[in-house]
Deep mutational scan, measured.
Amino acid sequence: MTEYKLVVVGAGGVGKSALTIQLIQNHFVDEYDPTIEDSYRKQVVIDGETCLLDILDTAGQEEYSAMRDQYMRTGEGFLCVFAINNTKSFEDIHHYREQIKRVKDSEDVPMVLVGNKCDLPSRTVDTKQAQDLARSYGIPFIETSAKTRQGVDDAFYTLVREIRKHKEKMSKDGKKKKKKSKTKCVIM
């Protein structure tokens, strides 16, 4: 069974824990209790493949930012979460993405942009803004509501699919490099 290491990042209060708990335990946590770091595991079937999701729910508070490099190193894919009623959390996505790329030393890291709290009427981040940002990053965008469960499975499952595509691409690139290195030079 394939294991996928997913990391949920975003500013404090955007609903990272609520999304994760909704996926794992099928219930909505409405009281806000700032996370330092929590880890969850769940076995699911995605596109006919049974897999184990190892999900790291991270601290959004700035005082825990020193811990970010460590979990970013171990993560295979990242859910970059903002709240649709919090423009600052949307603007912060850029910083999370840049930090992930720096730590992973790669421009090509599996990510999904997630606009959470889409059940709320007080939207300050337009869907088109988020779609445009995701398009500019070359990553999928999904709106979710941890409260109603809308888009929750889709967000995590899409990230797994992005990781699969990335692994497939990397193995193809690896095979191309191996083929090239088999060419021999004969000096007579």
Rank of each mutant, 00 (worst) to 15 (best):
residue 2 T to D: 14
residue 2 T to A: 13
residue 2 T to Q: 09
residue 2 T to R: 13
residue 3 E to Y: 10
residue 3 E to D: 12
residue 3 E to W: 06
residue 3 E to N: 15
residue 4 Y to G: 14
residue 4 Y to K: 15
residue 4 Y to W: 04
residue 5 K to A: 04
residue 5 K to Y: 02
residue 6 L to M: 13
residue 6 L to N: 03
residue 6 L to H: 02
residue 7 V to D: 03
residue 7 V to I: 14
residue 8 V to D: 06
residue 9 V to E: 02
residue 9 V to C: 11
residue 9 V to S: 08
residue 9 V to H: 14
residue 9 V to I: 12
residue 10 G to Q: 14
residue 11 A to H: 11
residue 11 A to F: 13
residue 12 G to V: 10
residue 12 G to W: 14
residue 12 G to S: 13
residue 13 G to T: 10
residue 14 V to P: 14
residue 14 V to W: 11
residue 14 V to D: 12
residue 15 G to Q: 03
residue 15 G to R: 01
residue 15 G to D: 01
residue 15 G to K: 01
residue 15 G to S: 01
residue 16 K to S: 11
residue 16 K to M: 01
residue 17 S to V: 00
residue 17 S to N: 00
residue 17 S to Y: 01
residue 18 A to P: 00
residue 18 A to T: 04
residue 18 A to N: 15
residue 18 A to K: 04
residue 20 T to F: 00
residue 21 I to V: 15
residue 21 I to M: 07
residue 21 I to S: 08
residue 22 Q to T: 07
residue 22 Q to C: 03
residue 23 L to K: 15
residue 23 L to H: 15
residue 23 L to G: 12
residue 24 I to P: 00
residue 24 I to T: 06
residue 24 I to F: 04
residue 24 I to C: 06
residue 25 Q to V: 04
residue 25 Q to P: 00
residue 25 Q to S: 09
residue 26 N to C: 13
residue 29 V to H: 11
residue 30 D to K: 15
residue 30 D to M: 13
residue 31 E to S: 15
residue 32 Y to M: 01
residue 33 D to M: 01
residue 33 D to F: 01
residue 33 D to C: 01
residue 33 D to H: 01
residue 33 D to K: 02
residue 34 P to T: 04
residue 34 P to N: 01
residue 35 T to A: 00
residue 36 I to V: 02
residue 36 I to C: 00
residue 36 I to G: 00
residue 37 E to V: 01
residue 37 E to D: 03
residue 37 E to T: 01
residue 37 E to S: 01
residue 38 D to C: 00
residue 38 D to F: 00
residue 38 D to Y: 01
residue 39 S to D: 04
residue 39 S to A: 15
residue 39 S to H: 03
residue 39 S to R: 15
residue 40 Y to C: 00
residue 41 R to W: 03
residue 41 R to N: 04
residue 42 K to D: 06
residue 42 K to N: 08
residue 43 Q to A: 11
residue 44 V to F: 15
residue 45 V to S: 12
residue 45 V to W: 06
residue 45 V to H: 07
residue 46 I to K: 12
residue 46 I to Y: 11
residue 46 I to A: 09
residue 46 I to T: 10
residue 46 I to S: 12
residue 46 I to M: 14
residue 47 D to K: 14
residue 47 D to I: 02
residue 47 D to F: 14
residue 47 D to T: 10
residue 48 G to P: 08
residue 48 G to H: 09
residue 48 G to W: 05
residue 48 G to T: 10
residue 49 E to Q: 12
residue 50 T to C: 07
residue 51 C to K: 10
residue 51 C to V: 12
residue 51 C to Q: 13
residue 52 L to W: 13
residue 52 L to N: 12
residue 53 L to S: 14
residue 53 L to C: 13
residue 53 L to Y: 14
residue 53 L to T: 13
residue 54 D to A: 06
residue 54 D to Q: 14
residue 55 I to V: 14
residue 55 I to A: 14
residue 56 L to V: 03
residue 57 D to P: 00
residue 57 D to G: 00
residue 57 D to Q: 00
residue 57 D to H: 00
residue 57 D to E: 00
residue 58 T to L: 01
residue 58 T to R: 00
residue 59 A to E: 01
residue 59 A to M: 01
residue 59 A to Q: 01
residue 59 A to Y: 00
residue 59 A to S: 13
residue 60 G to H: 01
residue 60 G to K: 00
residue 60 G to R: 00
residue 61 Q to G: 08
residue 61 Q to W: 02
residue 61 Q to D: 15
residue 61 Q to C: 12
residue 62 E to V: 03
residue 63 E to W: 03
residue 63 E to N: 06
residue 63 E to G: 04
residue 64 Y to M: 03
residue 64 Y to L: 03
residue 65 S to K: 12
residue 65 S to W: 07
residue 66 A to H: 14
residue 66 A to L: 09
residue 66 A to W: 15
residue 67 M to H: 04
residue 67 M to S: 03
residue 67 M to K: 03
residue 68 R to M: 03
residue 68 R to C: 05
residue 68 R to N: 02
residue 68 R to S: 10
residue 69 D to W: 11
residue 69 D to I: 05
residue 70 Q to A: 15
residue 70 Q to C: 07
residue 70 Q to D: 04
residue 71 Y to M: 05
residue 72 M to C: 07
residue 73 R to H: 14
residue 73 R to W: 07
residue 74 T to W: 13
residue 75 G to W: 05
residue 75 G to N: 09
residue 75 G to E: 04
residue 76 E to V: 12
residue 76 E to G: 05
residue 77 G to H: 01
residue 77 G to C: 13
residue 79 L to R: 01
residue 79 L to N: 02
residue 79 L to Y: 09
residue 79 L to F: 03
residue 80 C to D: 03
residue 81 V to I: 07
residue 81 V to Q: 09
residue 81 V to P: 06
residue 83 A to P: 15
residue 84 I to L: 13
residue 84 I to M: 13
residue 84 I to W: 13
residue 85 N to Y: 10
residue 86 N to R: 04
residue 86 N to V: 09
residue 88 K to W: 05
residue 88 K to E: 13
residue 90 F to L: 12
residue 93 I to R: 15
residue 93 I to S: 14
residue 95 H to R: 13
residue 95 H to P: 02
residue 96 Y to G: 03
residue 97 R to W: 12
residue 98 E to A: 05
residue 98 E to T: 02
residue 99 Q to S: 05
residue 100 I to K: 02
residue 100 I to C: 14
residue 101 K to M: 14
residue 101 K to F: 04
residue 101 K to C: 13
residue 103 V to M: 13
residue 103 V to S: 09
residue 104 K to R: 15
residue 104 K to V: 04
residue 105 D to G: 13
residue 105 D to P: 11
residue 106 S to Y: 09
residue 106 S to L: 12
residue 106 S to A: 13
residue 107 E to T: 15
residue 107 E to W: 06
residue 107 E to I: 07
residue 108 D to P: 03
residue 108 D to H: 11
residue 109 V to M: 03
residue 109 V to G: 03
residue 109 V to T: 13
residue 109 V to Q: 02
residue 109 V to P: 05
residue 109 V to D: 02
residue 109 V to F: 11
residue 110 P to F: 02
residue 110 P to H: 03
residue 110 P to Q: 03
residue 111 M to I: 09
residue 111 M to K: 01
residue 111 M to V: 06
residue 112 V to A: 09
residue 113 L to P: 01
residue 113 L to N: 03
residue 113 L to E: 02
residue 114 V to G: 01
residue 114 V to S: 02
residue 114 V to P: 01
residue 115 G to H: 07
residue 115 G to E: 10
residue 115 G to W: 08
residue 115 G to P: 12
residue 115 G to R: 06
residue 116 N to K: 00
residue 116 N to R: 00
residue 116 N to P: 01
residue 116 N to C: 13
residue 117 K to A: 15
residue 117 K to G: 11
residue 118 C to A: 11
residue 118 C to N: 08
residue 118 C to R: 11
residue 118 C to S: 10
residue 119 D to L: 11
residue 119 D to W: 03
residue 119 D to Q: 11
residue 119 D to I: 07
residue 120 L to A: 09
residue 120 L to Y: 15
residue 120 L to R: 15
residue 120 L to C: 07
residue 121 P to I: 08
residue 122 S to E: 09
residue 122 S to K: 10
residue 122 S to Y: 06
residue 122 S to M: 10
residue 122 S to L: 08
residue 122 S to G: 12
residue 122 S to C: 09
residue 124 T to W: 07
residue 124 T to F: 08
residue 124 T to A: 09
residue 124 T to M: 10
residue 124 T to S: 10
residue 126 D to S: 08
residue 126 D to E: 06
residue 127 T to Q: 06
residue 127 T to R: 05
residue 127 T to Y: 08
residue 127 T to W: 05
residue 128 K to V: 05
residue 129 Q to V: 08
residue 130 A to F: 13
residue 130 A to N: 10
residue 131 Q to S: 08
residue 132 D to Y: 05
residue 132 D to P: 13
residue 133 L to W: 13
residue 134 A to C: 14
residue 134 A to W: 06
residue 135 R to Q: 08
residue 135 R to M: 10
residue 135 R to T: 09
residue 136 S to H: 12
residue 136 S to D: 15
residue 137 Y to S: 14
residue 137 Y to N: 12
residue 141 F to S: 02
residue 141 F to Y: 14
residue 142 I to F: 09
residue 142 I to M: 03
residue 145 S to G: 15
residue 145 S to E: 15
residue 149 R to G: 06
residue 149 R to E: 08
residue 150 Q to H: 04
residue 150 Q to L: 15
residue 151 G to F: 12
residue 151 G to T: 09
residue 153 D to M: 06
residue 154 D to L: 06
residue 154 D to A: 06
residue 155 A to V: 09
residue 155 A to M: 13
residue 156 F to W: 05
residue 158 T to Q: 04
residue 158 T to M: 13
residue 159 L to R: 01
residue 159 L to G: 04
residue 160 V to C: 14
residue 160 V to A: 06
residue 160 V to T: 09
residue 161 R to D: 06
residue 162 E to A: 06
residue 163 I to S: 04
residue 163 I to F: 03
residue 164 R to L: 10
residue 166 H to N: 05
residue 167 K to V: 08
residue 167 K to S: 06
residue 167 K to P: 10
residue 169 K to A: 02
residue 170 M to S: 15
residue 170 M to W: 15
residue 172 K to P: 02
residue 172 K to H: 09
residue 172 K to I: 03
residue 173 D to F: 14
residue 173 D to C: 12
residue 173 D to W: 12
residue 173 D to T: 05
residue 175 K to P: 08
residue 176 K to W: 13
residue 176 K to G: 14
residue 177 K to P: 05
residue 178 K to N: 05
residue 180 K to E: 05
residue 181 S to F: 07
residue 182 K to N: 04
residue 183 T to H: 04
residue 186 V to L: 09
residue 187 I to T: 11
residue 187 I to E: 15
residue 188 M to F: 12
residue 188 M to V: 07
residue 188 M to P: 14
residue 188 M to G: 10
residue 188 M to R: 13
